[in-house]
Design a protein around this nucleic acid. Structure first.
Lengths: 209, 209
DNA sequence: CGAATTCTCTACCAAATGGTAGACGATCTG
DNA sequence: CAGATCGTCTACCATTTGGTAGAGAATTCG
């Protein structure tokens, strides 16, 4: 088998918690899936709750890594936004449980929301700083960075994860469909984010109040 | 007490299923909340699953009613979109469990997703038709109606419901904060949806390929 | 080699869960 | 009034749940 038992447990737990949810995932089911006994899980993680938190921590790390990788290229303006959207979609396809876990954790009243929030905070800060800078430089349309970030998050994660909603709207959840959705989403975001003056000439129009 | 026992059960079940989720809500907890015995619930609804489906049906009805009411005014272009966003936010504040239930049902792999989808289909059709018509009339920017609808859904429901994410981004979930979020979202959507030529003159620019 | 540590297992357990059976009173109906 | 129906209850039950106790194999270390 690949990796240590502990890592295998973490991996499979993320998959199950992320797709079925915390409450709907039993330790027995998780053990079965791994071909081990429940007590082995409880040896590595003293309780289900602590296992969940460990899963959240690794998920946060993975997410941060995903962003880090994409931001390091130092793109500017909407190109950077688009690159991140692409990356989020690729992640949604390759590891749907990762984004599913985010949705699970951010459920209202979730006790573990803070845990994820704290760990992802630096990434959010960077994102906000980026937005502010690009707005200042006139490469993105002006608006409240925090709120814009929230809108972006909701849209991207929503479109990337809500497969059932897509089906309900008559969009097949095929790979090609996913690509089409991403492209449409990018067009949508571009229209909302790119400055009104897209041609080269200097911004002759003052701030559009 | 208000309403029949059956209605009270449905009401409270929606609240619990919508906030805590199906798996995390036990019939005993639901009965306790209502001050009745679990067996009374099982008298009105033969099983937990059937209770859930009944809840979904009423939720679908409520959602359809919400939209019906807002669409009946016959607004045009972005004004209609904005009106619906306002309504969704009002609903999210007044009955958070209703939108929470939608999120619960649209979880990937949900067995009850089809149920809700079928019931809400007419509303979606109307929405799509509306978008198509308004695009044709030049009152909304052109794009794929189905995909646009998906983006709209994700953004609006996401921003309206993901309180934890908001907190993580440093936005207090107060009423005033909610209003501010809605306004920012509307601005975001307007930028994406309103035709580029906002002044009266005819669209001189050809399709921007 | 022998002892200590690490890891996985078998054997249980108390509590909670969804669900069944049926008693009992109220209410409706002939 | 008598019987049937309806609605809520008490009493149980089998299964599943998260978790404990501790045996025993494997590995590490002196």
């Amino acid at each position: 088998m690949t990796g240590s038992t502990r890592d295998r447990i973490l991996d499979e737990a993320m998959r199950l918690f992320g797709t079925d949810g915390f409450a709907a995932t039993s330790l027995d089911a998780l053990a079965d899936q791994l071909g081990i006994r429940k007590q082995t899980i409880l040896y590595h993680f003293p309780s289900k709750q602590l296992l969940f938190e460990a899963v959240i921590d690794t998920a946060a790390l993975d997410l941060a890594k995903v962003f880090e990788q994409e931001v390091s290229k130092g793109l500017r303006g909407f190109a950077q936004v688009e690159a991140i959207v692409r990356r989020v979609f690729r992640t949604a396809v390759a590891r749907p449980e990762l984004l599913g876990l985010v949705r699970e954790v951010t459920r209202p009243g979730s006790l573990s929301a803070d845990r994820l929030a704290t760990q992802v905070a630096p990434v959010l800060d960077r994102a906000r700083t980026f937005l502010e800078r690009e707005m200042q430089a006139g490469r993105l349309r002006r608006s409240d960075p925090s709120m814009l970030l929230l809108s972006l998050y909701s849209t991207v994660v929503g479109v990337a994860t809500e497969l059932e909603v897509q089906r309900a709207m008559g969009l097949a959840p095929t790979l090609r469909g996913t690509v089409a959705r991403r492209q449409e989403l990018v067009r949508f975001l571009r229209a909302a984010l790119e400055p009104r003056v897209t041609t080269k000439p200097a911004p002759t129009l003052g701030p559009v109040l």
